[in-house]
Design a protein around this nucleic acid. Sequence first.
DNA 1: GCGCGGTGTTCGTTTTACGGACACTTTTGT
DNA 2: ACAAAAGTGTCCGTAAAACGAACACCGCGC
Lengths: 233, 233
Amino acid sequence: MSTSSARPAGDPTPEPEREPAGATPTKESSLTLERGLNLLQAVADADSEAPTISDLANIVGVSRAAVYRLLGPLQSRGLVRREGSKVRLGLGVLWLAGKVVPQLRFAALPALRALAERVGATVHLTVADGNEAQAIAVVEPSWTSYHVAYRVGTRHSVQRGAAGRAVDLSEEGPKWITSVGELQPGAYGVAAPVRGVAGLRASVGVIAMEPLSPDEVGPLVVRTCSAVADALG
Amino acid sequence: MSTSSARPAGDPTPEPEREPAGATPTKESSLTLERGLNLLQAVADADSEAPTISDLANIVGVSRAAVYRLLGPLQSRGLVRREGSKVRLGLGVLWLAGKVVPQLRFAALPALRALAERVGATVHLTVADGNEAQAIAVVEPSWTSYHVAYRVGTRHSVQRGAAGRAVDLSEEGPKWITSVGELQPGAYGVAAPVRGVAGLRASVGVIAMEPLSPDEVGPLVVRTCSAVADALG
DNA sequence: GCGCGGTGTTCGTTTTACGGACACTTTTGT
DNA sequence: ACAAAAGTGTCCGTAAAACGAACACCGCGC
């Protein structure tokens, strides 16, 4: 939550206060929406056993009448669907997911571009989806005569390529990974995982036609990963 | 807004039974949740221009204070994230999307199984994601000596294979599509698109090792598509 | 038959969310 | 440079919205 460096308005200066016992540090929340999203989450959590209305009322901790009210808006947007008396996730979720990728890409682009121009090679952001990895953003340097063209949307196993293996790189151990000709003969890769963004398995990678100097490029990639993580977190 | 409101009022339940009593199309709704989801949608709709709090207040038609309150729950679940003073979609959406596929698969399985047993060949449900198609459910017949093994998760271009081309089959024209050896030499395919489920581009296909009788199998596939559409809609 | 576990809707009450106002900081503009 | 504009974040009293118990109802099994 807004770990961004620049905090716009002043809240670190509790100067004009007369708040005796600050019970909650400004708990901004809306109970109804909270419950509505709890409901959505409860539906999502039930993988194979579709919950009934009553089940949901129990899980979320509200009356059944409330579940009906909350289900309305959820349903009209296709986030949930009713199948007889069972409730399941709806396809509106997929629509939303389709919208998140461009925004994710957009947010990460500046950091990727900086790296691409710096090292003069193609840079990409890859996210894991199950045990497949997919490139969601690619940036090519603007000043080179030759560089590798890498297509957005490329998918491969998370076990292949520097970018693939990097997404699940353990906390300890090497900070980055290199590969030679794993996905494409003659292609040299360096990649590092993006850490610190909850729910995201991703990596930033560099692809070049000539061997990269790992000691030089590696740290740059790692730094870009941090930048990307900041941009997304 | 969008097409989501295209919910046929009449409950399309060709499913035999289970429907308790006459479902009265009562407009159950919760204003707060409605607004909260509108907010989420507003954030999703802004592809490249990240909206500010004030923007969102204008778009959704509520006071800024309300936006703050609504943003709380949304943010804590990672559905949106704040980037300085801009608001973007969060990664919780991807998490949700990951949960919808198994439920989708589960819902469609009975219809697929029925078809597989009927024609004695492997049946699969394929959904399009961008210009790639991915098999999310595969059912193999239980009584055949030989059948094609097809892996869940297989991806290919939407232009290839009967299942791929079927997802974007226009309303007019053929009801189903056949293919021979397009993805795999010696494999014969018949596929038809799943229609009527808003926001979903999908197809049901049959794969066999021997030529299928289109006139016989085609209508069956189409019928299965309807069944699947009903199960999901 | 009767209870049991479901759904769907109503109604009066009070909790919840509303939005104008304020204090403040950052950016814009002449 | 300074002023004006636009932005954020938070307070408050008020009114409207959401709450949950209760009701009417249906299908199933003991």
